[in-house]
Design a binder for these strands. Structure first.
Lengths: 229, 229
DNA sequence: TCGTTTCATATTGTCAACAATCTTTGTCGA
DNA sequence: TCGACAAAGATTGTTGACAATATGAAACGA
């Protein structure tokens, strides 16, 4: 198995997602330093490719790149966190508003099925999957709203949100539950733009209010254990 | 002079801006291929650094990176163009709205001075400067609105807008004139959120409506002449 | 003992050569 | 004459080595 891993070249995206997962699942704490050689050893790729992946992670706000110092897992302040939610409200309220007048039957079907998937992962206790699906729901809305630009921007914001939740979310409170997502879908199905906008606003505000400003849990474990193939 | 240029190392940002300017000033036409070696010769830097700059340009939507093929100046379709304006309206309407309730006296002063600068460049016929300042005005609004996130997102959109205007704007029509910017500042000064939002909406719609869907001017000149130090 | 300077180490930034891939040109056959 | 195939050339992708820089430790002086 390991021989196979060494044979098949790993794509940049796989490396990106591996690190992304580790951050979103709270395995790599904010502020942790990511050394290039360390990562290149772990993934058995050259430093140049690691460097490229790090640049992508930095673009999406998950890590911070300090010149001549290296890469650190981003440590968003509570102000930055609120800023992210402000940006998300701005974009997503507009998206659901537009969706109400443009969505078709198959779009609604896709939304419903996604919420079902979320429910399963949620009740199954799969935290990482639940977080990922929760983000994917919001991305799905952007896709269906047929705005590639806003969808791309939202993708960045959702990545940042995952990191923020990893940092500040209170224990036991599991991301945004599927119920609120279901309410959003209902509003869109009814083509009630005003209500959809309000529900989305409430939903994002709800998540934001779950943030816990006190606990700055810093989990620093050995990278190899976490990312190791 | 050329000896000096060869001695002092050029920063990545300088290369980025040089290419950005060339695209925004319509000197490099959409679809033009940018070869790495060609650029590294022109700027006397290694291909590795050129490559990095190209990645940044691609992130901001000014060029398209095709695997194993290279970099091409982006050729945004009219649909993408409209999408960019949709995204800008979404973000900027919210920004001016917020500005009306948060801006201070010194913020208003900065806006007024900026519009003055724009007027000078505009009447002076400095096209490139006018385009740059016009974009900077919108960025200034984002800065003053104290949303680093939206400001960053808007920065990308403004880059894309410059390219779109280079491609689709009708001749003789010079970007967004400073007058509409002045009207926006007036509304903000009056703290009339509703009006500020409307004026911003009108302003962006105005620019969008200036787009000419027919003329696809493709100016392909020798890169060395344009970018040469 | 504390602060400062110096040196060794570790890490990132840069580069030029090599490998892989794609495009173009030339040739052959129908 | 046209199309398919093959080789040559050009261009991007990748790698490992070297240079520049920052960090941390040790030595020194007050």
């Amino acid at each position: 198995m390991d021989a196979e891993a060494a044979r098949r070249p790993v794509t940049d995206q796989e490396i990106y997602e591996k690190i992304w997962d580790a951050i979103a699942e709270r395995q790599i704490g904010p502020g942790t330093r990511l050394k290039e050689e360390q990562l290149s050893d772990i993934f058995s790729v050259s430093r140049a490719r690691v460097r490229q992946v790090l640049q992508n992670l930095a673009r999406d706000g998950l890590i911070t790149l300090v010149p001549n110092r290296g890469a650190f897992v981003a440590k968003p302040s509570i102000e930055e966190a609120r800023d992210v939610f402000f940006a998300r409200r701005t974009i997503e309220e507009r998206l659901v508003e537009r969706l109400c007048s443009t969505i078709g039957a198959e779009g609604i079907e896709r939304l419903r099925r996604h919420v079902d998937d979320e429910r399963k992962a949620h009740s199954g206790g799969e935290v990482a999957t639940a977080i990922r699906l929760s983000g994917a729901f919001h991305l799905l809305i952007a896709d269906l709203a047929q705005s590639q630009i806003l969808a791309g921007l939202l993708r960045d914001l959702i990545s940042r949100t995952s990191l923020i939740m990893a940092m500040y979310q209170q224990k036991d409170v599991l991301s945004c539950g599927p119920d609120e997502h279901a309410a959003i879908v209902d509003s869109i199905t009814a083509r009630d733009a005003k209500k959809a906008l309000a529900v989305m606003h409430h939903h994002l505000a709800h998540i934001e209010n779950q943030l816990d400003l006190e606990s700055e849990r810093v989990v620093a474990r050995d990278l190899e254990d976490i990312l190791g193939l």
